[in-house]
Design a binder for these strands. Sequence first.
DNA 1: AGGGCGAGGATTGTGTAACAATCCTCGCCG
DNA 2: CGGCGAGGATTGTTACACAATCCTCGCCCT
Lengths: 215, 215
Amino acid sequence: MTASRDTAVLRVAAELRSEILSGRIALGSPLREEPLAARFGVSRHTVRTALANLAGTGLVRTAPFVGARVPPFDEAEAAALQDLRRALESEAADLLHRRYGGAPWPQAVLAPIDAALGRLRAAERDGDEAETLQAHSAVHRALVAAAGSPRITRAHEQLSDELSLLLLHARPRYGAGELERQHRALLADVQRLGAPPVREHLDDTLERLGIPRQA
Amino acid sequence: MTASRDTAVLRVAAELRSEILSGRIALGSPLREEPLAARFGVSRHTVRTALANLAGTGLVRTAPFVGARVPPFDEAEAAALQDLRRALESEAADLLHRRYGGAPWPQAVLAPIDAALGRLRAAERDGDEAETLQAHSAVHRALVAAAGSPRITRAHEQLSDELSLLLLHARPRYGAGELERQHRALLADVQRLGAPPVREHLDDTLERLGIPRQA
DNA sequence: AGGGCGAGGATTGTGTAACAATCCTCGCCG
DNA sequence: CGGCGAGGATTGTTACACAATCCTCGCCCT
């Protein structure tokens, strides 16, 4: 899974991303260039541009002359993240709802979402927490991708990484099979009603993180 | 105005950004590292990371071993951009509308938007096309910023650059003072009605670019 | 004892030079 | 006229060096 991609900086960036999203790198800990360069067997320049990449996706934050670290989240930032998420997901839902006029969506559109739901079911069944997190994230990504608006999809994918990082450390608790049930219901509701169910769903998520939505 | 910022790569990135947004660099033209390094008196490394920065904001697009170029837009991309824009601006409008319940917004919230509208008025009066474009963009940014959701604001600011680039080359035509009138009306409508007027406004913009909104 | 202050190490920012990897053009050959 | 290399152009990466900035820690003064 430590796939070798095209260029060295993509490899390093992918590896760092995986380490951050798996929690192997703690929140707030600085990422020093020289040790990373030594560890990956690349030059500092390469590490440096890999870190700049990650900074673009929000997985690390950098400041001049102080370097990169994976950002800790406070409640305000979690709420801000969720605002952006609501913007993207509700617009996607609205696009889909308008496109199909409240009727059930074609099988071709539903298939990827169903696949993601299946993955979520399996992850919850196995009690694999990390995989559940990833699968949950994949369900939302699939829903947004179904809208077929590439820029919304891209923005959401970026956001998704940051969100995974947040959820990885906030660790909201769900009952067995609850996530899959909840999202199957969401999918049905969105087909009939469009964006509003998505908003409710996201507000619920935020509440479970202990952050009451403000006016 | 070619301000010297903190680091060399920020300077170079800012200068390139300004050249792209002013149209001094043509759409589709490649940005070669060596000539740029020579021109700015910096090393190729510096140019390279500056370009990577710009790639993150969408002002240039890069592919491994082929380099960076400022992306040309086709209709599909313009529509995709506008989808994302609608997601962000309508969510911002909705946040504001829910916060103030359809009542007029406080002066403190309106002030920056009014300032931007004033700038737009002046630009239109002077017939300065470039400044009109920038001022128009600033009005939308001010509206989004008023919602006070930092991540939506940031995403919209990024988008704004790309949008300016698109509009710079698409050049929709407006009558004298039309933009200011239209946006003052929009501001009034958004206070009463929330997101829907924003959606209409953006659909109208897209139509003027000759791109009919699809289902 | 406690709080500024500065010296020096640690870390990042940038440059130079070089070479490897890949792309791309252009002329040759069939 | 179209495929195909050869070689130049361009990007990706490395190593090393040094400047700029940050940051820690011990000193000094009160």
